[in-house]
């Protein structure tokens, strides 16, 4: 049985190690070493890198999706998304679907903000100080953009970019609250 070379890891192995950070920390604590070993074994046994990454891409997508939906944080995010979809549908039927409709922009922003926060948590969640620095930096940037946009356009509701940024802030705030509430309990891989 071959294993990862201790001194020179391939770029594939390094990339895979980075992608593993998307899994919940407790799952990684149990399986990280073995998953890296298995990846190295697969890499040795597979002639084509394309085939290897197709398998790994499918595996990451399926297993991360399964874990995310099974976690408490996943449930929270789904609930928030459903609420936003409901708000959007109500808005669509009450105000029509004219271009530039504020709810659409804000909703797109929320989705983007939540996605950014989720990725940031998975990538930096294990390094608490780094994660906090990242979070504060991004929030400050968005607040600054929002303020500049407000001063420039004088109205929060008239300009689509302001609506998107407002939505992003709201999405990030939702995820931040979710992580404070559920972040430490969301690691059990789903049944």
């Amino acid at each position: 049985m071959t294993g990862p070379a201790p001194h020179e890891a391939s770029w594939s192995l390094r990339l895979y190690a980075r992608l593993l950070e998307l899994y919940p920390p407790e799952f990684l604590q149990r399986h990280r070493a073995e998953m890296l070993q298995n990846f190295a074994d697969l890499e040795d046994a597979t002639a084509s890198k394309t085939k290897l990454w197709l398998l790994i891409g499918k595996d990451l997508t399926m297993s991360l999706t399964s874990q995310f939906f099974a976690s408490q944080l996943g449930s929270y995010v789904i609930a928030v998304l459903l609420t936003w979809i409901l708000i959007f549908i109500i808005g669509y039927f009450t105000h029509g679907s004219r271009p530039g409709y504020p709810a659409l922009h804000a909703f797109g922003g929320v989705l983007f903000g939540m996605l950014c926060m989720y990725l940031a948590t998975r990538l930096y969640g294990t390094l608490q100080s780094q994660y906090n620095a990242y979070l504060i930096g991004v929030l400050v940037a968005f607040v600054a953009l929002f303020t500049i946009g407000y001063l420039r356009y004088r109205s929060l509701l008239d300009h689509p970019i302001l609506q998107v940024i407002g939505g992003v802030l709201l999405g990030m705030l939702s995820m931040s609250i979710a992580m404070r509430l559920y972040g430490t309990q969301q690691n059990s891989p789903g049944a």
């Binding site: 899994y23 799952f27 149990r30 399986h31 073995e34 998953m35 298995n38 990846f39 697969l42 398998l55 790994i56 499918k58 595996d59 990451l60 399926m62 297993s63 991360l64 399964s66 874990q67 891989p189 789903g190 049944a191």
Partner: peptide
Amino acid sequence: VKMGPGTLYGSLDRMIEA
């Protein structure tokens, strides 16, 4: 059935729990 590490260890966790 081609199983990757993520699917395998996720399944093993659930099977151990069961």
